[in-house]
Amino acid sequence: MAKYTFVTGVEKRFDDNELIVSKTDLKGRITYVNDVFTAISGYSEKECLGQPHSMIRHPDMPRCIFALLWETIQSGEEIFAYVVNRCKNGDHYWVNAHVTPSIGPGGTVLGYHSNRRTPDRDILEKKIIPLYKELVSEEQRFGSRKDGLAASQGMVADMLANSSVQYDEFIARL
């Protein structure tokens, strides 16, 4: 959960030719951010380094998608996912994230690397935002965060089973 959850409802955008990059250690603590990351998020590099990546977590981001993301990268696989992040001032920005394990000598996972591009606005507005609203609503329906997470994970599992695809293929087909 993000330390700060104040949100303004104002969306910030970045250019299609820009790439937001960050790296984390195995526990999700930030070890690197590029200039685009700091410009869009409003945090300085110094404020980011050593902090949990969840510092930019937006409360409208379904927990089940982050759980799927972490499960995937911790298994050594890459994942593509639409993510809404929270800026330091409470604004937000959407990204199409490609998250991969950073592999060292002998195949050891050293941390994680994320490249984020501008999302396809049509897919975002017609598919992702409504889906994420539904997932967050399901998560909040329960008194227990654990029960809410399990319920939204079940929704995603059912959606993927009905489509006969894995999550990455689901995202690629949108």
Rank of each mutant, 00 (worst) to 15 (best):
V83I: 15
H58P: 11
E45A: 14
H98S: 14
S102P: 00
R121Y: 07
C87E: 01
R117V: 08
T72P: 06
E45I: 11
R29C: 09
E138M: 12
G90D: 09
I73P: 09
A97W: 11
A67N: 14
E71M: 07
I123S: 00
G90I: 05
A81L: 14
E138R: 03
P101W: 09
L26Y: 05
E77A: 10
P105E: 12
L49P: 01
E18L: 14
L49N: 05
G90R: 05
S44V: 13
E134T: 12
M61V: 06
Q74M: 06
W70F: 12
D122T: 13
V109Q: 09
E18P: 08
S114D: 06
S54P: 04
K127D: 12
W70M: 08
S75M: 12
V109L: 09
F66V: 02
F66C: 01
L26M: 10
L110T: 07
G111W: 03
C87V: 13
I103Q: 03
I30E: 11
E134M: 15
S102I: 13
P52S: 10
R57M: 08
L19A: 05
L124T: 11
H53A: 04
Q74F: 01
G50M: 10
F14K: 00
V7T: 14
I20R: 04
G104D: 08
T108G: 02
S102E: 12
R86M: 11
F66T: 02
D60I: 13
G50S: 04
D25W: 12
N17S: 14
V99P: 00
R116S: 08
H53Q: 11
P119A: 13
N34G: 08
P119V: 05
S75H: 08
E77K: 15
L49I: 15
E11H: 08
R121W: 05
V99S: 05
P119L: 07
E77H: 15
A39S: 14
S114L: 06
N115Y: 10
G111I: 12
C87W: 08
I30K: 06
N115L: 15
I20M: 13
V83N: 00
M55L: 14
F66W: 08
Y32N: 03
Y112E: 02
G42P: 03
T31D: 01
F37S: 00
R63D: 15
I123P: 01
N34R: 07
T38R: 05
E134L: 15
S102M: 13
I73F: 07
